[in-house]
Amino acid sequence: MNLLTENPGATLLLAVMVLASGVGLYASPAMIERNLFRPHWLLPRRQYLTLITSGFLHADLAHLLFNAFTFWAFSFALERTIGTPAFLALYTFGLLASDAGTWFKHREDPTYQCLGASGAILAVLFASMLYFPKASIYILPIPVPIPTPLFALGYLAYTYWASRQPRGRINHDAHLVGALAGIAFVALTDGATLANAVRSAIG
């Protein structure tokens, strides 16, 4: 399989995510500082570019590896199904929707700052769940496949727990909004798939 031919969108996004995060973590920490999303300062300082750039950076290697794995596991099949333009639109919609939710919650806090691709990746994950409701994922060392809906709900449960821990830079608040954005995107662009997923869930 030629990834650049069959999955140009997912391949490019994953490459930029890994490269930018690697440079920020190991070569230029100042790059991460410049591109953190700071909701309170978004409008006063016109830091509009951080809405995008913060979504390609990660707090540490574990954060990057988990997001990269989740993206890899679900994005390539989804892009081949819905097409590259729709896939890139979904990713962008998830990223900006999660940023909007973060801005609304933290816009009055001048000290809050965050980063991470999780909002956009949750949009991809939940959209994939609707297109492939019976799919499963293998995660070593767990010896049995994990159904995608169970993985998605487990991801959100972890997010809820993590968001209540002492503050770090990871934008856990973006996860739920990203998940809802993925569902909303499918509802707006392919209502039949959403209806089929609902019938599969209740049938």
Rank of each mutant, 00 (worst) to 15 (best):
L115V: 01
V177Y: 01
H175L: 08
V124P: 07
L122K: 04
L42T: 03
T148N: 00
S28G: 05
L65W: 13
S200G: 14
T159Y: 01
G168M: 03
L95Q: 13
A77N: 11
G119N: 02
H40L: 08
A162W: 01
Q47P: 07
S200Q: 13
T189L: 03
Y91F: 14
T111V: 10
G22F: 06
A187F: 11
R167Q: 01
M31N: 09
R45I: 00
I32N: 12
L51A: 08
A89C: 06
L3M: 09
S21E: 11
T50Q: 08
P143G: 10
L13I: 07
S98C: 12
L64H: 02
R107H: 05
N196A: 14
S54V: 10
F37C: 06
Y138E: 13
W103V: 03
G55E: 09
V16H: 01
Y112E: 03
R169C: 00
S163W: 01
R199N: 12
C114D: 05
A184H: 11
S118T: 06
A77H: 07
S54I: 14
S98Q: 02
P8N: 06
G154R: 07
F126K: 08
L130W: 10
K105S: 11
A201L: 15
L12W: 04
L140D: 15
I183T: 09
G178T: 00
A100Y: 13
L25Y: 03
D173P: 00
A179M: 00
L88S: 06
S118F: 10
P141E: 13
S200D: 15
F151R: 00
R167E: 00
I142T: 15
A73L: 07
A97R: 04
T11S: 01
A100E: 10
V144I: 10
G119M: 03
L130R: 11
P149H: 09
R38N: 04
L180K: 01
R167M: 01
S75F: 02
N196K: 15
I170R: 02
A157W: 04
G178L: 05
F87N: 02
D109Q: 05
A123N: 08
V186S: 09
A162H: 02
A179L: 02
F74E: 03
K134M: 14
L13A: 01
A59C: 10
V186A: 04
V18N: 04
N2T: 06
D99C: 13
T159D: 10
S75K: 08
L90G: 07
T148H: 07
M129W: 15
I32E: 13
H175W: 09
P44S: 02
A181P: 02
G55F: 13
S128T: 15
S28K: 10
R107Y: 02
E108T: 09
N171V: 02
D109K: 05
D173G: 07
L95F: 12
A152C: 03
A135W: 15
Q47N: 10
R45Q: 02
L43V: 12
A27P: 12
N67A: 08
G168Q: 01
F74W: 06
G182S: 03
T193R: 14
Y155C: 04
S118W: 10
N171A: 04
I139R: 11
T111R: 08
G191S: 12
V186L: 05
V198I: 14
S98V: 03
T111H: 13
H175Q: 09
T11G: 07
P8E: 03
F87A: 05
F37Q: 12
L14E: 01
N196G: 12
K134E: 14
I139C: 12
T81Q: 11
G55T: 09
L122Y: 12
S75N: 11
L78N: 02
H63K: 13
